[in-house]
């Protein structure tokens, strides 16, 4: 469903941009519909850059990202608008990802209205459904993000992403700002949603235990390049040798 081909992203850094930083340097992988693909690496390995490229928030220096065979960086007009909906991203810090001046109801209604998915009085109904889908009651409709816990905010972020009917969610360290027990709740929810809607996940994390538990296929990023790729079980047995960990 998603194919990443030879993706590169270079940044200029230092005085007058004289230093070239190869944040992502020729990365290729593919994600099947309804599956979870784990991308692991140390901080600074370029994981988040890959996530942002796939979500279309950054333009690559070179390479392609194909969604259902269509290059997301070559699409125009209606097609671009459609692809935008189909790939959504969820960030690490849920409270930061929500506009603190908007109520939860407004936050969830906004994408529906912008993409003209629902109209008029059906909006409120749909927002209620979305809240229910992530296990929040209708009383959250009029709350502000800062009145809620981190776990609840992350549920709202997930609901907002789901409102557009995506096929792929990029999860960029979705729970590293949350407590362990809340992390488990969020992943339980993500699993349920995946089963129900055949969503694919690109899970970006530095937590090997988490990725090995959740992902089917895993790739290891090191200094912008993939150094290892395959089914979770075999990659992690290898990693222990490479990093001498545990």
């Amino acid at each position: 469903m998603l194919q990443v081909e030879n993706l590169r992203k270079y940044f200029r850094d230092g005085w007058w941009g004289r230093r070239l930083v190869k944040a992502v340097d020729g990365v290729s992988f593919a994600i099947e519909a309804g599956s979870t693909f784990g991308l692991v690496g140390e901080s600074g390995a370029g994981k988040s850059t890959v996530g942002r490229l796939v979500a279309g928030l950054l333009r690559p220096t070179d390479g392609r990202v194909l969604f259902e065979g269509r290059d997301i960086f070559k699409a125009n007009g209606r097609e671009a608008f459609y692809l935008r909906r189909k790939i959504q991203i969820i960030f690490q810090n849920p409270e930061g990802a929500l506009n603190p001046r908007m109520r939860i109801g407004e936050i969830l209604a906004e994408p529906l209205l912008v993409h003209r998915l629902v109209r008029g009085r059906h909006v409120r109904e749909r927002v209620g459904e979305l809240l229910a889908m992530v296990g929040l009651g209708p009383e959250f409709y009029s709350r502000y993000p800062w009145e809620m816990s981190g776990g609840q905010n992350q549920r709202v972020v997930i609901a907002r992403a789901l409102s557009l009917g995506p096929s792929l969610l990029v999860l960029d360290e979705p729970t590293s700002a949350l407590d362990v027990s809340v992390q488990a709740q969020v992943f339980q929810l993500l699993k349920q949603i995946q089963n129900k809607m055949r969503l694919a996940y690109l899970l970006i994390s530095h937590d090997l235990e988490l990725v090995s538990r959740v992902a089917g296929e895993v790739a290891v990023l090191h200094q912008g390049r993939l150094v290892e790729q395959g089914p979770a079980a075999s990659v992690f047995s290898h990693l222990c040798v490479v990093y001498g960990h545990k």
Partner: peptide
């Protein structure tokens, strides 16, 4: 992040 999120939502 909430501005990045708004961009991601199209």
């Amino acid at each position: 992040e909430f501005v990045q999120a708004a961009r991601a939502l199209g």
